[in-house]
């Protein structure tokens, strides 16, 4: 794909450009072409430069509190000049309430102080790729919770509990030998309960139960493309258990993220290869 071209701009009068300069450098290091406007640019000047330089993205930086006026002014000017297809993101000292307001007006995303530069560059890459129609949509939330994993001593005993008291029946039982587990799926609404039982003592389920007893084990999100999500998460500095997708219980690609990076929850990403039964239930 063509190199992404970015215009980093300082609208308004504030002279604090440490953030703008650092982001410019970080995006260059991430392989983008970056043009920095310098200080005190009016919305008109910014849009003129963006069109002249034929950029994909404009990044606006403001630390003086003028963002509520100036960022939308840049969007208006872009639309007036027929350049509404240029993506605009922003950064700076911007309170949460203003962020929601600005994002609803069409600023793609506001990054606040403390955001790692990798998150910014990854976001821009995804946004531009999506905009150019080169990749699937990674900027939206996962489609749904696919299933909730529960570690159990015995699938049969647990399945009996759900069947007797909630009338939820097992749909399918499968073995995943390379992970040392036997799993059962119990459909519930547009989600499933996955019961996991250790096959032998080398299984992670065995050590999980030994340490914490039976109970909630992981949460699985359904996504469009596990590989792309992993690539994105990796550039954003998230610790992965599986750097490559592996085969799950029904043969679909799955991968786990490390709970150290997810604030304590073991997260699984899974991809439905057979989309025929995808839209049952839900909205």
């Amino acid at each position: 794909m063509d190199k992404i071209r970015v215009l980093i701009a300082k609208p308004g009068l504030d002279g604090h450009d440490r953030g703008a300069l650092v982001i410019s450098q970080a995006l260059r290091d991430a392989g983008m072409e970056v043009i920095y406007t310098g200080l005190r640019q009016s919305p008109k000047q910014i849009v003129r430069a963006a069109i002249q330089e034929d950029v994909d993205v404009i990044g606006l930086s403001s630390l003086s509190g003028a963002h509520n006026v100036l960022f939308p002014a840049v969007l208006n000017e872009l639309n007036e000049k027929g350049a509404g297809d240029i993506l605009v993101f922003g950064g700076g000292v911007i309170p949460l309430v203003d962020i929601k307001e600005l994002e609803s007006k069409g600023i793609l995303k506001i990054f606040t102080p403390g955001t790692p530069t990798k998150v910014v560059s990854s976001y821009i890459k995804q946004a531009v790729a999506e905009h150019r129609g080169e990749k699937m949509n990674l900027l939206h939330p996962p489609k749904k919770v696919d299933h909730i994993g529960i570690a159990v001593e015995s699938i049969e005993k647990t399945a009996a509990f759900y069947a007797n008291h909630f009338h939820i029946n097992v749909e399918k039982i499968a073995e995943v030998p390379d992970q040392g587990v036997r799993v059962a799926f119990l459909p519930l609404g547009n989600c499933k309960i996955e019961l996991l039982e250790a096959i032998d003592e080398s299984s992670s389920i065995h050590s999980f139960i030994k340490k914490r007893g039976e109970g909630l084990h992981h949460l699985a999100f359904e996504v469009d493309n596990v590989q792309q999500r992993l690539d994105q998460l990796k550039t954003e500095g998230i610790r992965l258990i599986d750097e490559q997708p592996k085969q799950g219980a029904n043969g679909n690609p799955i991968a786990f993220l490390h709970p150290k990076s997810t604030h304590g929850t073991l997260l699984e990403l899974c991809e439905e290869l057979d989309h025929t039964n995808n839209d049952k239930g839900g909205q």
Binding site: G12, L13, R40, A66, A73
Partner: peptide, 18 residues
Amino acid sequence: QIGYDSDDPMALGEVGKV
């Protein structure tokens, strides 16, 4: 600080901010 009055077009959005 940059020598514009409050009604100057350059002052848009910045009056009284910092």
